[in-house]
Amino acid sequence: MKWRVIELHENDAFFHMAMDEAVSEAVAQNKSPPTIRFWTWKPSAVSIGYFQSLKDEVDDSKTKELGVDIVRRRTGGGAVYHDNLGEITYSIIAPENMFPKNIIESYKEICGYLINAFDSLGIKSEFRPINDIIVNGKKISGNAQTRRNKILLQHGTILYTVDWEKMFSMLKVGKEKMSDKVMQHVKDLVTSVKDVNPDITQKQLFEALKNSFTQGKEFETGSWTEEELTRAKQLAEEKYSTKEWNYKK
């Protein structure tokens, strides 16, 4: 089956969550091919997992002050700060029968693309179940998957560089704001591509990701359809940007 690859593009958090859902629907209806897309968040945003309490995870007065969006994902997992310049995010959307039925195995397969990309950049990484990739024991990529209507969606983020102060000013650990001690602890747990090798550019990272995700796949570079775009705009407006959705827990 021929894949569609949508190259690095930027948009806001609500649009991206909506586009993942719009493409999932289109793939489920056989209107679109399985799709891989790479994207960044503009403006920067915090995403929270489907089951998380927004107020427990995020200081929403601080995000407002900094012009940072908050969006609830349709996937589980944890809260993540997505800096506009600090990361690359991918989504892979395909019929679930193209991947292992076992959830951990399917994470492992898709995370394998990331590990190969890191490898090609000279960075040794490994998969840490359930959904992380680590370098020297520190997390460099978090991933989240859902399956609905026989379609697998996995999106994940690759940390290119980290703005610690900004990140810590918005995210809460448990219900507390981060103390210096907790901040040091998180610094010991999280790393980024620039941390490991400051010479790697974001473009090189994107190229490495694109090459590894498409390896062995027949693919065409393309964009979303008009129908997907219309649906995504609708979902962004009626779901992902609403208080009912984002503050539901």
């Binding site: 089951f51 309490s53 589980g76 997992g77 944890g78 959830i103 959904n131 998957q145």
Partner: peptide, 15 residues
Amino acid sequence: VSIEGDFFAHPENTI
């Protein structure tokens, strides 16, 4: 009752 956290459940509305 509200069941919260950073776990995964497919389908999500099971929770």
